[in-house]
């Protein structure tokens, strides 16, 4: 924790978060390589958010035979005047799971166990890639421009709260 959540009630299915995520990490817009996504049914408009729950899940870390998924400390500063600021304050300290690309052998164990389908083989580097909370300034939250309420927001649990003190 903390981790990004997409509210399926508030999300309008504009995919701005995926665009911003890919541009930030790939230096170009390439949403097929985004690290989160909103699954939209075009007929019914039903929406299901897919994000990495970081240490609140850690299935990929457990499954990795090479200890390539590492827990790192992180300080998250949400860009923009968003509800997460009122809820979680300006700055949130916590842990994030990141891929150590030296150790990753692209064996795919984590790809199969991820419950939200957000860790995959990178098409160019052929190692796993996943959400790393943009080194503390999540672009998905910044560009979630749902005019009224934040659809893509930062979720913080009790463990993190103790860490803040």
């Amino acid at each position: 924790m903390p981790h990004v959540m997409i509210s399926s009630k508030k999300c309008t299915g504009c995919h701005m978060c995926e665009l911003a995520c890919s541009a930030y990490h790939e230096n170009a817009y390439r949403p097929s390589v985004a690290r989160l996504y909103s699954e939209v049914n075009p007929t019914t408009g039903a929406i299901k958010g897919h994000t990495c729950l970081q240490t609140a899940c850690a299935k990929c870390q457990e499954a990795c035979p090479h200890d390539a998924i590492v827990t790192k400390e992180i300080t998250v500063r949400v860009k923009g005047d968003y509800p997460s600021k009122e809820k979680n304050g300006e700055v949130v300290k916590g842990y994030v799971l990141v891929v150590d690309e030296e150790k990753c052998t692209n064996c795919g164990e984590c790809y199969d166990v991820c419950p939200t389908n957000v860790i995959h083989e990178h098409p160019d580097r052929h190692v796993a890639f996943k959400c790393d909370l943009c080194d503390g300034e999540p672009q998905c939250i910044a560009f979630c421009q749902n005019p009224h309420v934040l659809a893509v927001d930062l979720k913080v649990d009790k463990k993190d709260k103790e860490l803040q003190a």
Partner: peptide, 24 residues
Amino acid sequence: RGTGSVTVGDDAKAFLDDLYRIHS
């Protein structure tokens, strides 16, 4: 179906920052 990318200059982060301003 397309899996390629659209480039916006050699520093996409600079473009993102300016675009964030334009949006707000």
